[in-house]
């Protein structure tokens, strides 16, 4: 028996919004420690890794490890049927071929349940080692989304240059060139507005705007985003989900011609 409850459907809606543009389907691996999803996007250029800890749920029960392959488009249709303040419960029997989403209104007067067929997805899991990165940048998630959106107008690629003074995002194309420099902040009143750079070695890396923009669909989940970069290895874009877990996106740097 698997049962996971969140007192507010908004978080689950935001999580789905953060992955459904990159992935058509995904396997939710459930265990007593929580729910994990790892999947490459359709073109195998980026990797999505979602971790939701069991202690972040308002109720969590998982008697046996369970892998539930879901069509994310179908899941999105179902979650549209939930009000933001509904309690959402995800339920499945052991070895079941369906999953049930139950939505309960705050006053308990409306209870709906939607059963969805599970899919058998033959997805390979990749081992992602814990790595020390040359540069780790924490910045407001809204600011990162804005920069990715703005620079995508000028080029398919953005160059991220990180030194201990700051981080620079650049794009150049037929129209001209664009540069956005952010300095590390000191003594900001609100932690969520801070720009913090931890640098061992400066890095200059080029990434595809299209994927960075897809990652910023997670912006509503978190005030801050963390970018971890080293030469010649995938960038990690991490959004923490308060008290529940995180979503990480991995994207390989583009190779200069």
């Amino acid at each position: 028996m698997f049962e996971a409850r969140l007192n507010n459907a908004t978080t689950l809606k935001k999580i789905l919004d953060a992955i459904k543009d990159l992935l058509n389907e995904g396997t939710f691996d459930c265990s007593d420690s929580g729910i994990q999803l790892q999947a490459m996007d359709n073109s195998h250029v980026s990797l999505v890794s979602l971790t939701l800890r069991s202690d972040g749920f308002d109720k969590f029960r998982c008697d046996r490890n369970l892998s539930m392959g879901m069509n994310l488009g179908s899941m999105a249709k179902i979650l549209k049927c939930a009000n933001n303040d509904d309690t959402v419960t995800i339920k499945a029997q052991d070895n079941a071929d369906t999953v049930t989403f139950m939505f309960e209104s705050q006053n308990q007067e409306k209870v709906s349940d939607y059963e969805m067929k599970l899919m058998n997805l033959d997805q390979e899991h990749l081992g992602i080692p814990e790595t020390d990165y040359s540069c780790v940048v924490r910045m407001p998630a809204m600011e990162f989304a804005r920069i990715c959106r703005d620079l995508a107008q000028f080029s398919e690629s953005v160059v991220i240059c990180c030194t201990k003074e700051g981080v620079k995002f650049s794009a150049s194309g037929d129209v001209g060139s664009a540069n956005v420099k952010l300095a590390q902040t000191f003594n900001v009143d609100k932690e969520e507005e801070a720009i913090v750079i931890e640098m061992q070695e400066p890095v200059v890396l080029t990434f595809a705007c299209r994927y960075l923009n897809a990652f910023t669909k997670a912006t509503p989940l978190s005030n801050q985003v963390q970018l971890s970069m080293s030469a010649d290895v995938p960038l990690v874009v991490e959004y923490r989900i308060a008290e529940l877990g995180h979503i990480r996106y991995y994207l390989a740097p583009k190779i200069e011609d």
């Binding site: 250029v45 990797l47 990749l126 081992g127 398919e156 299209r210």
Partner: peptide
């Protein structure tokens, strides 16, 4: 995408 490596090539299968 040109100049873009497959993300799977950076990690070993589990």
């Amino acid at each position: 995408t040109s100049g873009q490596k497959n993300i799977g090539s950076f990690f070993a299968p589990k």
